[in-house]
Design a protein around this nucleic acid. Sequence first.
DNA 1: TGATAATGAATGAACATTCATTCACAGCCA
DNA 2: TGGCTGTGAATGAATGTTCATTCATTATCA
Lengths: 209, 209
Amino acid sequence: MTAQPAERQPPSDKHQQILDAALRVFAARGVHGTPVPPIAREAGVSVGSLYRYFDSKEALVNALFQATKAKLSEHLLTGLPVARLDRSVFDELWHRLCTFARQQPDAFRFLEMQDHHSYLDPQSRDSEYRLLAPLRQIIELGQQTGMLGTHLRAEVAMALFWGAFVGLFKAERLGYLTLSDQDLAEARDACWRTLSPQRDTAPNNRIEP
Amino acid sequence: MTAQPAERQPPSDKHQQILDAALRVFAARGVHGTPVPPIAREAGVSVGSLYRYFDSKEALVNALFQATKAKLSEHLLTGLPVARLDRSVFDELWHRLCTFARQQPDAFRFLEMQDHHSYLDPQSRDSEYRLLAPLRQIIELGQQTGMLGTHLRAEVAMALFWGAFVGLFKAERLGYLTLSDQDLAEARDACWRTLSPQRDTAPNNRIEP
DNA sequence: TGATAATGAATGAACATTCATTCACAGCCA
DNA sequence: TGGCTGTGAATGAATGTTCATTCATTATCA
């Protein structure tokens, strides 16, 4: 993008400073609830500068959404062995979800909040799909190879799983609980049991090998 | 305008009309994203009248939140047999959740949206607790009577379950899937399996009868 | 010096809230 | 009966505030 070789600190990247600040403020107060001047203040720049880097608040929201979505996609999917979905891959995916939610709580929250939907342009909505599609593919693959049960349609399985994970961290953020590592491991096991083939009550609907 | 003495419609309750309209508009556009005049228009009253019934937008949001939360509590808990949590009680609870989400989608959405949190007063936050506390008690009871597994702390189990359910309908609202009755039944079974005692991998930690 | 970046007060649009006025009707009087 | 009046709900233009955005000015640097 820029051709500067040297910049020690990344002061060149006011662009990035602004995105970072916006993420913090949006995560705390929502998009509709956040005026532009506080974003600039948080980023340590003037309002005018902010508008030098982003055409409008809407453009800022969309850029932030896509960047954050891409960061999550990369964090979850990069190098993930997707040839098959067995227990170890599932555990790895869970671990990555947890580290993202823990290390980048603002990003996680921002992506899950709904109040920016009216701002999002088609490209942002696409970026949503670029995360969800691979995840669904992984689940479908798991079902085809018999590692996951087929008692749930893949879309339904994904909605349940994703919702459960989000619910966990949402409950923590709202102060209803505090998640220990053991809690997370137990929740992971519970989710795996939900997705894995039924052993007792289900009729035989396994796929021929 | 009309001089009818016997009020056929219940125009007496402008209060209720305004609450109903606000629910519709908030569910569609969010609280921060909704100006007051559209609410009044949707309710068929003037802005001035709205302010006769509610001191401020904030007061309206809080009244609506508490009323809606109470409606959900009543829908879920009234007459629910809570002496024990067995499969039939769980199914009944699931059924009630589904009918609420289906019949009152605006109410369901409004309660789940986060963007009104900055508006909520302590009393509204209390009303949140009045729904969650009984649900957690039910889960704890289920664990004590051995109907539910103890592999998850009750708070964690609740967060997973609630999150999964919300995720299901959120995915439908966003157009990622369409939930058939069969999907809902299968999701219900999957959630029950998540909560019920582990049969294969768990050590014996049942409670003495 | 000229070009580019940064600034924050200024601008106008959109907002929440108010209030002077209208309106419908019940009670009252002649 | 027909007109007069007090009352309080209803109205929406007016008000002051907050917002997103602009731009004249200043600072920076090559």
